[in-house]
Amino acid sequence: MILKSPAITRVLLVRPGATEFDDQGRIKGCMDMPLSETGRRQAASLVDQVAHFRCRTIYTAPCESARETADLLARDPSSGQRVAKVKVIEAFRNLDHGLWHGKLIDELRRNHPKLYRCGQETPLDICPPGGESISDAKSRVEKAVLKLLKKNSDDLVTIVIPDPMAWIVQTLLSGEALADLWKAETDSGKWDLIEPVLSGR
């Protein structure tokens, strides 16, 4: 399947600020957690870094850290007044890591070395016990991303979404292969401006 945007659309992909689990190197998956102190500093820094971009709507994952970050981005830094709408997209909810929620990534590396290597080399094959496979999560988010690109053709689309789902979205947009799940688990407070290539399955 090849995803194509009908016109040139740029995507501002924002990873929200960190939560306490991110700070600790734990897997948070779809657990709903607020920004940590570190995360609030990261979110404030993001506001300054992307202030020159203009968008009418910010599309965000439903988790608290993403919504907090999106709310800050939707406000004018000097006045605090809202200058963009924030819309929650349920399909952007983070990967359900099942029984892995709360586990240290380093613990998985030490206790399950084969599984850890699979997450580095062939992450599409990963499915946490009681959770959602990365392949299923990719299919879920792919539909939502394509819908946004069609709706906002020839415009800037701003998406606030935590890792590892942001990692999946970035590979969909760029046409890159999925690689190293564990590195993606720990990214936060970052942004990328992407002109979608969108080569999919």
Rank of each mutant, 00 (worst) to 15 (best):
P77L: 01
P113L: 01
V86Y: 09
C55F: 08
R117L: 07
E68S: 10
W100M: 13
N94G: 15
S78G: 00
R117I: 02
I126G: 03
R54Y: 03
L95F: 14
P113W: 03
Y59M: 06
E121Q: 10
P113T: 02
P128Y: 05
A61M: 11
P77A: 00
D125S: 13
E90A: 15
S78I: 02
L108S: 13
Y59T: 04
Q120I: 03
S78N: 02
R82N: 10
V47S: 05
H101Q: 15
E64R: 15
P129I: 00
I105P: 06
A91I: 03
F92Y: 14
R75D: 03
T69G: 04
P62E: 10
P62D: 13
K85D: 15
V88D: 03
I58W: 08
L108M: 15
C127S: 06
D96Y: 14
D71F: 05
D76V: 04
D71S: 13
A91Q: 14
G102L: 08
P123N: 00
V88N: 05
G119C: 10
Q81N: 11
V47C: 04
E68A: 12
C55M: 04
P128R: 07
I126H: 06
P113F: 01
G80Y: 11
H112Q: 14
C63L: 15
G119A: 01
H52E: 14
A91T: 05
R56N: 04
A70W: 10
S79W: 10
P113M: 02
H52I: 10
A74G: 07
I89R: 07
T60Q: 04
V88W: 08
G98D: 12
P62C: 13
R109T: 12
I105V: 15
H97M: 15
P128D: 01
L95W: 15
I89P: 03
L95C: 13
F92K: 13
E121W: 00
C127T: 12
A84H: 04
A91E: 14
H112F: 12
K114D: 13
R54T: 06
A84S: 15
C55T: 09
E68K: 06
E107T: 14
K103G: 00
Q120D: 01
A84W: 03
P77R: 06
L108T: 14
D71T: 11
D76S: 03
G98R: 13
A74W: 05
A51Y: 06
A66S: 14
K85F: 04
R109Q: 15
A70S: 09
I105H: 11
F92I: 11
R93E: 07
H101D: 05
L115Q: 13
V88E: 12
P77E: 01
Y116T: 05
K85N: 14
R82Y: 09
P113C: 01
I126F: 11
C63G: 13
V47H: 02
P77T: 03
R75P: 08
K87C: 09
H52Y: 15
A51F: 09
Y116K: 07
N94P: 11
R67S: 03
V50E: 02
I105G: 07
K114Q: 14
Y59P: 05
P113Y: 03
A74F: 05
